[in-house]
Design a protein around this nucleic acid. Structure first.
Lengths: 217, 217
DNA sequence: AATAAAAACGAACGTTCGCTCGATTTATCC
DNA sequence: GGATAAATCGAGCGAACGTTCGTTTTTATT
């Protein structure tokens, strides 16, 4: 998986060039990363709306004015932060299925990919879950579509498995919903699993265990 | 189940009498309910910290000054809102187990109770989940303890079932964690299930189905 | 070393925030 | 129905907010 952070911030920079007043790519990428990491950290501690731009300025070491060369407003920063992770998540999830035909294998791979991805990008996943309701109409809709799309990937896999008589005849949509809830718990309650020393591999196996006992013949 | 809202607000009033400047119980209960309902509604739309007391004043129809006769500060309101639901949830969950001995029956009853409770008090459950991190140290700790206590109820039931050789030898703690994640999805993604016309009974049966296929012999 | 471009700076602006308090209205009691 | 208590009111306070902009510092080019 190509999860280079630098590539992600380069995309972000190119995509929002009009609103970013910084000219040099190298400078932009360095400080966008600085700002986004700090914003994710503070947002996950006290919520995005409680984070003041002075908090952010202190955490990044940039002045207020400097920050405003990278973001055009606090609202727009929220948008960009959401946008930043979403496209990558979908890309990676779909790519992970490439070349796999067996529904069992597909299901297990997607579960693993989702968990590893949310491990790698945990601050973003947590942020995305908690702050979606604060987005404006269009982006709020996009975020929900994205959530449903992930669910749909699971639905498709399950329905294929059912029609191939590899899985029991279950309600694929409800099953996918609950599966998604289990995957979400991994990044929403990360502190709990960390405290208990549960590793992502163990969690992944466990989710697959529960699901397969319900789904497989 | 005795879920009288009036009783709950009466308890709240008595418990916080020192900080509430209102003398007459009847008046206090009426307006506490008004304030809390409005605060839950606005908080669930835009987050507690984005809710201004002028928003709250507009929604309740009370003036700023009047509101401050019922709450001593915005922070304290947050505390009270959390406190308000927590004790009831624990009480109801424990009471629901009274007189039941069979682990299967206990498990299914607790699942159902939890789901019906989160149906009845959905705004509070959603609020509680989303705003816990904004609590101050002591109450944040209390909230987490409360969350773990609910999980522990499930762990206890499962371990009893395992030792009685009614359930498979599973990791009770992890299983309880995932079960909790499934129960939480019901109130966190309420819009999704509403859109799809999924009723609480159906959801409850489904969760029990999945769990029993994993747990029962 | 001089010049121009780019980036960073931070005080200041208007607005909104949580909160207070003296004035006013409503309810209660003899 | 007059007096006392209880509840409500809303303008006003200082602090903090997001945002701007004239200035200074750093970097790149000649």
């Amino acid at each position: 998986m190509d999860l280079s952070e630098e590539d992600m911030y380069r995309d972000l920079f190119v995509q929002n060039r009009e609103e970013i007043q910084i000219k040099k790519e190298k400078t932009a990428i360095k400080n966008l990363a600085l700002i986004f990491d700090a914003a994710l950290f503070i947002s996950n501690e006290k919520g995005f709306s409680s984070m003041s731009l002075r908090d952010l300025s202190a955490k990044t070491g940039l002045s207020m004015g400097a920050m405003y060369s990278y973001i055009s407003s606090k609202d727009k920063l929220l948008d960009m932060m959401h946008q930043y992770g979403r496209s990558m998540v979908l890309k990676v999830l779909i790519e992970s299925l490439d070349g796999i035909d067996d529904p069992k294998k597909q299901l297990e791979t997607t579960i693993q990919t989702h968990l590893y991805l949310s491990e790698f990008m945990q601050p973003w996943f947590y942020f995305s879950y908690m702050e979606t309701k604060n987005l404006h109409k269009d982006l709020h809709k996009k975020a929900i579509e994205s959530e449903l799309f992930t669910e749909q990937i699971f639905v498709d896999i399950m329905e294929k498995g059912i029609s191939k008589q590899i899985f029991h005849r279950v309600d694929a949509r409800l099953t996918a919903s609950l599966l998604k809830a289990m995957l979400q718990d991994w990044y929403l309650k990360r502190w709990k699993y960390k405290d208990r020393g549960v590793k992502v591999e163990e969690y992944s196996d466990f989710v697959i265990d529960i699901l397969s006992s319900y789904l497989y013949f």
